[in-house]
């Protein structure tokens, strides 16, 4: 069906391609940011700033 997209194929594929890039960027950002905060928290806990898992009830 999409083989018939013809002269408009570039617009359709560009739209889906850009959406995919933005979606992947959102996921990567979420994963990397979460890992960075986990690492920072682990460093602080290792340095004795707080016991592991402590202070979970406050933001």
């Amino acid at each position: 069906m999409m083989a018939e997209a013809g002269r408009h194929a570039v617009f359709i594929w560009s739209a889906y391609g850009i959406t995919t890039v933005i979606a992947v960027a959102l996921v990567l950002r979420a994963v990397l940011d979460h890992r960075a905060q986990r690492r920072a928290l682990a460093r602080l806990e290792a340095a004795g700033a707080a016991a592991p898992g402590q202070e979970t009830g406050r933001v």
Binding site: A30, D33, H34, Q37, R38, A40, L41, E45, A49, V59
Partner: peptide, 11 residues
């Protein structure tokens, strides 16, 4: 992640 970030900041 934001909750973790704030915990990191406070600690």
């Amino acid at each position: 992640t934001e909750i973790l970030r704030r915990r990191v900041r406070r600690l």
